[in-house]
Write a protein that binds this DNA or RNA. Structure first.
Length: 927
RNA sequence: GGGCACUUAGCUCAGUGGUAGAGCAUCGCAUUCACAUUGCGGGGGUCACAGGUUCAAAUCCUGUAGUGCCCACCA
């Protein structure tokens, strides 16, 4: 009595199966040797999981990357690699701090300043420890086979050590420095804003034209501005060097109105001669562009505003505008405008629409300000420690981070899939500027730099210093800022493997770092290619003298069905957990993979998951049917090795059996090829076609007539489950568990059987089976054309030539699948009945181009219908003949086209002509 | 302004030189059969447009139009 599968899949199996996997400990590569000997001396395969935000909820984007990486990992593991998928979470500094700050503000009406640094950090850590397990369980829910025993968190003590070590090494090499930079400041929130926290709004305003007189002269130069009050901070006027109107003035000195400050005229490419008057007042303290101009032309910088948006009294005293000190910006503007007007410096005003940056939180207009920040210098030279690495990248001994990052991709040391993103990468590299790594928030890795309160020395150290190295004073204050999250994420591939303490070697075995780094592949979304991927290449290149991964696979974004990004605010977010509950995880995984290609965005909708669910159901029923067969294929022992049971000698398999076994082998080959090419969507598509259109629709239908050998049923089922496992791990493992004590996840992935059958699509059995299919399909077709009920058994007639006598053996199959009673006899030509041309010779070793007429007896047959249909077919055939012959008669075709194409077209033409003739005869007969 | 993509069936998308494909939707026939989350069959496309290269173009090149994304700028 065979074991029967229940009619429906029980959704509860997912949790059970995952527990089984986890308790097997095979997610940990160290334990794989106990699973199978083939892991004993296995090559490593590793992926560092892009760490989701520690407070995050699973979304479709994470569902997609978890699916893709799990496919890679499960496939590698089954192929026998020592496979490590290392999971973790990111502290996501800004995002996390914002969440907690907002909560505290809502519930307690307190700001972070009210709480203080210590208390805020305590609250955040408390919050994080609550939420951290949440995302982990959701990762499990997706079926992810990652090694939880090695799980990491970017803010853990080990990883903090890695961060400080990296910082110190880069600082010592001169790659990290502290300098001035323009940042976005929100005067109301009292905080810096990242570039993407600034929103832009178009507002109506006035453009003021102000006259700046020449020193000691009568004339003046007019500049245009929307913010006249910033003139207090002007230290120059800039014109475009190509602007002929102003060329002669470059180097001359102007007198700043009201203040009589001497300011030079400089030339700079940033200036657009078309805009305003073509002459720009330069306020280096409060405009990013002006800041650049000032740096390049050596102009002074004045810090005009206080953090809360008033005119800075100290600077006012230093630069002679005391009377404005302490005024609010608007007050200063009114005062200045009044004075300019009364002294006739104001030429005119014009209404203008312009864009201003506002704080995304409070809508206050942001003020660009200069502040001290830490940077990684990307154009600073350093010496490559690992000479081999430098050589392989064709870099000279002294190089820069920018050159290094470019060379890693250019040399092919790291490949990007799809390749077109390499162009983006190079473009970005060309425009790369020094990387600002300091952030003015509290949650994160505090910058390991201390300032001596006595002698102002800066000390960068891994451990908190006890005394100043210069003056031995003991009062040291650590820099308040924290590091950009990408700084710690950049170390992710190796900080997670134990760096900087690589001496973890156990009993002569290589350490994780030695074994698993560089990682095999990095799989992530294309939108963080620059933020993250490039930073990993930078960090790994400088700190390890190595690449962080060999391949980068980029996936696209999951959008809603209208192509919009999914977000909370637009209310179009789909919760993967709900989808999983409704359709199952395997169905969700399939829907994310099918029809998706690397680097392309996908539009997601539930109907796709439905299609996935339908397939899972089909697979379930295929297994159910195979298992239910008597004698059960599951009782058959031992397992036949693939490739066995075919070949020379007396035939012991039916045509259908031989056919499906070859199809299985072909599907195996293609699946492996597609996976190797990172083309997971078409790998799944290929498997789906095999499973549904070949195995279920043909082989299993035939198996209802001629019972298959149990060994073959077992072989097909086992291979099917193995091939599918990386894509849909739950259902495959569950079915496997019905007749195996071992785990499917560590079974060997099927590879094409030896003997080269894998590529054969025109073997004798393939050809014969194809003709059998054509005969059956032809009969089904005729029946459908006449709208005859599917249940009605009709009579069919075919006169078989001797060479096709093997068909007799399949009359039972033909009759059942075509729902006809077949007569192998000549049809009475006088009976006007529809027929089709069956061409069981075309391209077959039997040769010949003739076709055989197959008749179907239709009660109440009306020749008119058949005439219309036949005429349509004739037109099609004639079009085809025209196309083929015109192509073949073109000059050069016979000379230049490859031989196999010529042969193919010739046979096609011959058979099309024969078909046209036959159709004409048929029409004559019908009329 | 610079860059990168995309435009193929009603919808969502595969398809990199040799007769246009899938899923969904639609239409017809079929419910005691492993599966109606099913089976069988049909209809539906001058592959955005215009040139060019080639014996041969959805596919390669150039241009045009539309769409999307990224970066920069907006005194």
């Amino acid at each position: 009595m065979s074991k029967a599968l229940p009619k429906k899949i029980d959704p509860k199996i997912e949790n059970e199966i995952y527990k089984k996997w986890e308790s097997s400990k095979f997610f940990n590569p160290d334990n794989l040797e106990t699973a199978d000997d083939r892991f004993w001396k296995a090559e490593p395969f590793s992926i560092a999981m892009p760490p989701p935000n520690v407070t995050a909820e699973l979304h479709l984007g994470s569902a997609l990357f978890l699916t893709l990486q799990d496919i890679m990992v499960r496939h590698a593991r089954m192929r026998g690699f020592k496979t490590l998928w290392l999971p973790g979470t990111d502290h996501a500094a800004i995002a996390t701090q914002n969440v907690v700050e907002r909560k505290i503000l809502e519930t307690e009406k307190k700001t972070r300043q009210d709480l203080g640094r210590q208390e805020l950090l305590r609250r955040i850590n408390e919050f994080v420890s609550q939420t951290r397990g949440h995302i982990q369980n959701q990762i499990r829910k997706m079926g992810s086979s990652c090694d939880w025993s090695r799980e990491k968190f970017t803010l853990s003590p080990e990883l903090s050590l890695a961060v400080r070590t990296a910082f110190k090494q880069m600082y010592d090499a001169g790659l990290i420095y502290r300098g001035d930079r323009m940042i976005n400041w929100c005067p109301r929130c009292g905080t810096t804003l990242a570039d993407d926290e600034v929103e832009y709004k178009t507002v109506k305003g006035e453009m003021y034209y102000i006259r700046y007189p020449f020193k000691g002269g009568e004339n003046f130069l007019t500049v245009a501005t929307v913010r006249p009050e910033t003139m207090l901070g002007d230290t120059g006027v800039a014109v475009n060097p190509k602007d002929l109107r102003y060329k002669k003035f470059v180097g001359k000195i102007l007198m700043l109105p009201l203040l009589n400050r001497e300011i030079p005229i400089v030339a700079d490419d940033h200036v657009d001669p078309e805009f305003g008057t073509g002459a720009v007042k330069v306020t280096p303290g409060h405009d990013p562009n002006d800041f650049e101009i000032a740096k390049q032309n050596g102009l002074e910088m004045i810090n005009l505003y206080t953090p809360d948006g008033h005119i800075n009294p100290e600077e006012a005293t230093d630069h002679g505008f005391d009377e404005y000190g302490g005024l609010r910006a608007e007050e200063a503007r009114d005062k200045i405008l009044a004075e300019l007007e009364s002294k006739e410096f104001l030429e005119k005003t014009e209404p203008i629409e312009h864009r201003v940056g506002v704080c995304y939180r409070c809508d206050t207009v942001v003020e660009p300000m200069i502040s001290k920040q830490w940077f990684v210098g990307v154009n600073t030279e350093f010496r490559i420690e690992n000479k081999e690495f430098g050589k392989s990248l064709k870099l000279s001994e002294k190089t820069t981070l920018k050159e290094l990052m470019t060379a890693v991709i250019k040399s092919g040391a790291v490949k990007i899939v799809p390749q077109r993103f390499e162009k983006n990468y190079f473009e970005w590299m060309k425009n790369l500027r020094d990387w600002t790594i300091s952030r003015q928030i509290w949650y994160g890795h505090q910058i390991p730099a201390w300032y001596c309160q006595n002698c102002k020395a800066v000390i960068v150290a891994i451990e908190t210093p006890t005394a100043c190295g210069e003056c031995h004073a003991t009062l040291m204050v650590q820099d308040e800022d924290t590091l950009d999250t990408w700084f710690s994420s950049g170390l992710w591939t190796f900080s997670t493997l134990g760096w900087p303490s690589s001496a973890k070697t156990r009993e002569g075995k290589p350490s994780d770092l030695e074994l698993f780094h560089p990682t095999t592949i990095l799989e992530t979304a294309y939108d963080i290619l620059f933020f993250w991927v490039a930073r990993m290449i930078l960090m790994s290149g400088f700190l390890l003298g190595d690449i962080p991964f060999k391949t980068v696979y980029l996936h696209g974004l999951v959008r809603d069905i209208e192509g919009k990004k999914m977000s909370k605010s637009s209310g179009n977010k789909i919760n993967p957990l709900e989808v999983q509950a409704k359709f199952g995880t395997d169905a969700l995984r399939l829907s994310l993979i099918l029809g998706n290609t690397p680097g392309n965005d996908m539009k997601f909708s539930e109907t796709k998951v439905e299609a996935g669910r339908n397939f899972i159901n089909k697979l379930w029923n295929i297994a159910r049917y195979l298992i239910s067969l008597e004698p059960s294929p599951l009782a058959a022992v031992p397992t036949i090795a693939s490739g066995e049971g075919r070949g020379e000698g007396p035939k012991n398999l039916s045509l259908a059996a031989e056919w499906i076994e070859e199809r299985l082998n072909i599907a195996t080959t293609i699946t492996n090829q597609k996976i190797a090419a990172h083309d997971y969507g078409s790998a799944a598509d290929e498997l789906m076609k095999f499973t549904w259109n070949e195995l279920a629709d043909w082989y299993l239908e035939i198996a209802k007539i001629e019972k298959p050998k149990p060994e073959l049923g077992k072989k097909i089922l086992e291979n099917l489950l193995k091939l599918w496992h990386p894509f849909i791990p739950f259902i495959t493992e569950y079915i496997w568990s019905q007749f195996h004590a071992s785990l499917l996840m560590v079974e060997e992935y099927p590879t094409p059987a030896a003997g080269g059958k894998s590529q054969i699509t025109n073997s004798k059995s393939q050809t014969q089976f194809k003709h059998l299919q054509e005969l059956i399909t032809g009969l089904r077709n005729l029946r459908a054309e006449y709208r005859e009920e599917s249940k009605k058994i009709l009579a069919s007639y075919v006169e078989l030539p001797n060479s096709l006598s093997w068909i007799h053996d399949y009359s039972g199959v033909i009759e059942r699948l075509s729902r006809t009673k077949i007569n192998f006899a000549k049809m009475d030509e006088d009976k006007k009945m529809p027929y089709f041309f069956w061409s069981p010779y075309g391209g077959s070793p039997e040769g010949g181009g003739e076709s055989v007429k197959v008749y179907l007896i239709i009660p109440n047959f009306d020749p008119k219908t058949e005439i219309t249909l036949t005429e349509k077919k004739l037109t099609e055939t004639e079009d085809r003949i025209k196309k083929l012959s015109s192509q073949m008669s073109k000059r050069g075709f016979l000379k230049k086209a490859p031989a196999d194409i010529i042969t193919k077209m010739k046979t096609d033409l011959t058979s099309a002509e024969a078909r046209a003739e036959a159709l004409k005869t048929k029409l004559k007969h019908l009329k």
